[in-house]
Design a protein around this nucleic acid. Sequence first.
RNA 1: GUGGGCGUAGCUCAAUUGGUAGAGCCCCGGAUUGUGAUUCCGGUUGUCGCGGGUUCAAUUCCCGUCGCUCACCCCA
Length: 415
Amino acid sequence: MKNIQAIRGMNDILPDTSRYWEMVEGLLCHVAIQYGYQEIRFPLLEFTELFTRSIGETTDIVEKEMYTFLDRNGDSLTLRPEGTASCIRAGIEHGLFYNQIQRLFYCGPMFRHERPQKGRYRQFYQFGVEAYGLFGPDIDVEIMLLAMRFWQELKIDHKVELQINTLGNLETRVKYREQLVQYFNNNYDVLDEDSKRRLLTNPLRIVDSKNPDLQELIKNAPKILDYLDYEAQAHFDGLCRILDEIKLPYVINPRLVRGLDYYCRTVFEWVTTEIRAQNAVCAGGHYDGLVAQMGGKSTPAIGFAMGLERLILLVADNLTMPNLQVIYLVLLGDDVIAEGMLLAEKIRANNKVNVIVNCGGGSMSSQLKRADKSGAAIALILGDAELAKREVLIKYLREDKPQQSVKIENIFNYF
RNA sequence: GUGGGCGUAGCUCAAUUGGUAGAGCCCCGGAUUGUGAUUCCGGUUGUCGCGGGUUCAAUUCCCGUCGCUCACCCCA
């Protein structure tokens, strides 16, 4: 019989890497809380319509990447492909946005049915931050500083670069889009197949093409910065001015658009050159129209999401994990098991250290081998002879100190 | 959806005129009947991804298929 394997693109996180995940997730939550953000958790499953209405009918995500299926009662449900739609749904449903400011973050798995490759999987993890009720540009800067703090805490700030752009307001985008379509239609024969397709689905993305043959054409294409209305221009100028004053390095990338339909005004990406292909580690922008579009009161909003797999690829090789202090309790013979278990309980309660009790018996030699393999700094040895004297042996596995014999009631003073 | 690379022990990998498999690591035991990591000795581990074809004989050659991986598209 064939063994059952994990679904393609869905990975197990094994003990040798889960510690990185625990560390990174813990740090991200801690930093977000430092900035006054509060965690929000929402379901992995939502009505399909939530995502088709918010992300955009013609985006790749909605057209071909969602895990969608019928519930037993006939409802169409979808595993969340991103967090913002659910966050807004939850906020509207519970009255979080009405005349209020909310600073929220979330963390968890998202699902997209794409071909897996390095840094891109079908179940992948995102950490996202969202601020509601603030127009900016001050909140834009706060959120960028928050991301910058992540990179500094994770010691990868030298590996990432902030790129920003503005898409203007919704009317600007529509006007610009028309001009862009006209321009590329006039040069239709020069376009490659991908771009011809994008001309119909998402013309803004042609500007973002990597095809070297198109670079000249793209260079001469209309620029969104030339189409901004006064308000959007003032917002973008204000953002740049604050960034300059606080000396947060950034580059303006006029080609930076975003994939999802709901973005407007400020958009930004943190990119890295360390990963060759999937170089966007963190990306976001404003989605000021989305709350109203989903049925809530008009509320400005901004946020970003980062891909944790990509983040951990950057972090793993230059982060030293602290060694946890582990104590391994060697038990010689069945008669000392009960006493040993109780001793371990008392040490855990009093000293807040990690105690591994040897289970499954074994000789002194084999138990010490397990102790060594566990990474323990100290082995405690308890046998009939020690128990008779109410003593336990302390053996130091990582430093050159002599073994000692200690009264059980005094053991707590040694850690 | 498109294209490249790869599937042999738990892991990393060998095995050419085609003759049904081997090393290191890991694990277990012993040297030390109660002292790890070092050293020495011994031992276990296989549907050669799966299915078919050619052949006296296929891990090897051919066809198909599945899986993994990297890249494109797209995205975090």
